[in-house]
Simulated scan of single mutants.
Amino acid sequence: MVRRIRGLAVVETLCIPLFAAVALLWEMPLTAANAAGLGLLFLLIAEGGAYWRAKARQLARDLPLPEGMPVFAALKRANLVLFAAAAAAIAAALAGGDTGTRVWPGVLLWLFALVEQVNYFHVQLSHDNRADLARLLRTRRLHRSHLARDLDRARRRPAP
């Protein structure tokens, strides 16, 4: 289990340069809308990688919770402000007449970041192994994400 979670941490972190390379190779224009969407996605992926690293350390050290839960609780709230700011940048670009690759990649990246926010902080949308798929098919419903469950446990846990 720890090995799989460490793998998730590495894969999440490697996605940042991968998406940057795709944006460069695709020659995505560096507009405010595109930068807002891409920056937001990078931030969410970095948060996911940090969580999986903390989760792997928790399991390896047999700790009750991953370290940094107060930080993740703050990020969950701060991300909402960042989503609103990025949406405002995208809306301003659309209102200013930007079209095509000057704005639509930013919209799609913003939506991808939103999916990542839901996947990390609310419900598990990613089902990338047999156990996850079997549970989804067996229960026929999405389950709370690991981070959401850890945040709940941290909130209920009395302060030392």
Results as ranks from 00 to 15, higher is better:
residue 62 D to M: 06
residue 78 A to D: 15
residue 70 P to A: 08
residue 79 N to Y: 00
residue 72 F to W: 08
residue 84 A to T: 02
residue 56 A to T: 05
residue 76 K to F: 00
residue 68 G to Q: 14
residue 86 A to V: 03
residue 74 A to E: 14
residue 83 F to M: 08
residue 59 L to Y: 04
residue 81 V to S: 07
residue 63 L to H: 13
residue 53 R to G: 01
residue 82 L to H: 04
residue 72 F to M: 05
residue 77 R to V: 12
residue 75 L to H: 12
residue 79 N to G: 10
residue 62 D to L: 07
residue 85 A to N: 11
residue 86 A to R: 01
residue 57 R to C: 13
residue 81 V to N: 03
residue 79 N to M: 08
residue 59 L to T: 09
residue 87 A to M: 05
residue 85 A to V: 08
residue 82 L to I: 07
residue 80 L to A: 06
residue 65 L to F: 05
residue 88 A to E: 05
residue 80 L to T: 03
residue 60 A to Q: 15
residue 65 L to T: 13
residue 64 P to V: 02
residue 59 L to A: 09
residue 63 L to G: 11
residue 72 F to A: 03
residue 66 P to Y: 02
residue 57 R to N: 14
residue 57 R to E: 15
residue 83 F to K: 03
residue 77 R to F: 09
residue 85 A to G: 02
residue 72 F to S: 02
residue 88 A to D: 06
residue 56 A to E: 10
residue 58 Q to C: 15
residue 63 L to F: 10
residue 58 Q to L: 11
residue 56 A to I: 02
residue 68 G to H: 13
residue 81 V to K: 05
residue 65 L to K: 01
residue 53 R to C: 04
residue 78 A to N: 15
residue 56 A to Y: 07
residue 58 Q to V: 12
residue 60 A to T: 11
residue 71 V to I: 09
residue 74 A to K: 15
residue 61 R to I: 00
residue 65 L to A: 06
residue 66 P to L: 06
residue 80 L to Q: 15
residue 85 A to T: 11
residue 73 A to C: 06
residue 64 P to D: 07
residue 76 K to G: 00
residue 57 R to K: 14
residue 64 P to I: 01
residue 77 R to P: 10
residue 69 M to L: 14
residue 88 A to F: 00
residue 71 V to C: 04
residue 78 A to E: 15
residue 65 L to V: 12
residue 86 A to I: 04
residue 71 V to K: 09
residue 65 L to R: 05
